[in-house]
């Protein structure tokens, strides 16, 4: 029994083996991009919006409002990053119900990649927002003694993000597989429903936590921070 789709090679291209994680990631990417292109191809002010466009607008505006609530401000770049995180994780988890589909988020490599992305995005957003000095100063807040703890905290965030997402999705898939072998006609349905719910919740949590981390790094310095030498 393979617990990770990384070990399943779907096909090879030019001698490079393409495993299930990468393959199904591409599937999700193609699906998301294709739907977006199809729905937004006739997006002009003079064309009245249809129900698909309205659905996409609701989704995008919902993500934007959530980010605004967490970050306290509207920021397009944060929307692009956190919104893509949410959509990718959510669609990957929702496609769990499709027979034969192995969600890429069930791979620790994927969740690690996403966590690393967040881990890299946080200082990048922070430096872009505050400048290099301003961002590095946050590591010695409230005092210089906190520097190692802040660094540990920064890495533990990424690790916790990766492990949390991976654990939830992978465990859901594993439990579904085990129960399928025990009671093949009843438990899979219940587990699939539960998997959809937890998948959406995990996507939400992952995106929200990423938003919190990034917005914390990009937040304008408070008065107390300004007064501190």
């Amino acid at each position: 029994m393979n617990l990770s789709p990384d070990q399943t090679v779907v096909f090879s291209a030019w001698g490079i083996p393409i495993n299930a994680t990468v393959f199904y990631t591409w599937v999700v990417m193609v699906l998301l991009t294709g739907v977006a292109i199809v729905i937004t191809r006739n997006l002009r002010p003079d064309v009245p919006p249809n129900r698909w466009r309205t659905t996409l607008e609701v989704i995008v505006q919902g993500i934007e409002s959530q980010i605004e609530e967490v970050a306290g401000r509207r920021e397009r770049h944060l929307l692009y990053f956190a919104g893509t995180l949410f959509l990718f994780v959510a669609v990957s988890n929702l496609l769990l119900v499709v027979p034969g589909f192995a969600p890429p988020t069930a791979s620790l490599s994927t969740t690690t990649a996403l966590a690393l992305s967040v881990l890299i995005a946080v200082p990048l957003f922070g430096i872009t927002s505050r400048g290099l000095g301003g961002y590095l100063k946050t590591y010695i807040q409230p005092s210089f003694i906190m520097l190692p703890f802040n660094i540990i905290s920064e890495f533990s965030r990424g690790i916790s993000l990766a492990i949390r997402l991976y654990g939830n999705i992978m465990s859901g898939a594993v439990i579904a597989a085990i129960l399928l072998s025990v009671a093949p006609f009843f438990f899979p349905v219940v587990m699939d429903v539960l998997g959809l719910l937890t998948g959406l919740i995990q996507a939400y949590i992952f995106a929200i936590l990423a938003t919190v981390y990034i917005s914390g790094a990009t937040a304008p310095p408070s008065n107390s921070e300004k007064e501190t030498p």
């Binding site: 990468v22 990631t25 591409w26 999700v28 990417m29 998301l32 991009t33 977006a36 292109i37 937004t40 997006l43 466009r53 996409l56 607008e57 995008v60 934007e64 397009r76 929307l79 692009y80 990053f81 919104g83 893509t84 995180l85 959509l87 990718f88 990649a113 996403l114 992305s117």
Partner: peptide, 18 residues
């Protein structure tokens, strides 16, 4: 892949919609 997806969605989803 994720960075490509960010760019794709920015290009074909977020920007047109917003």
């Amino acid at each position: 892949n994720f960075l490509v997806l960010v760019w794709l969605l920015k290009r074909f989803l977020y920007r047109p919609i917003l």
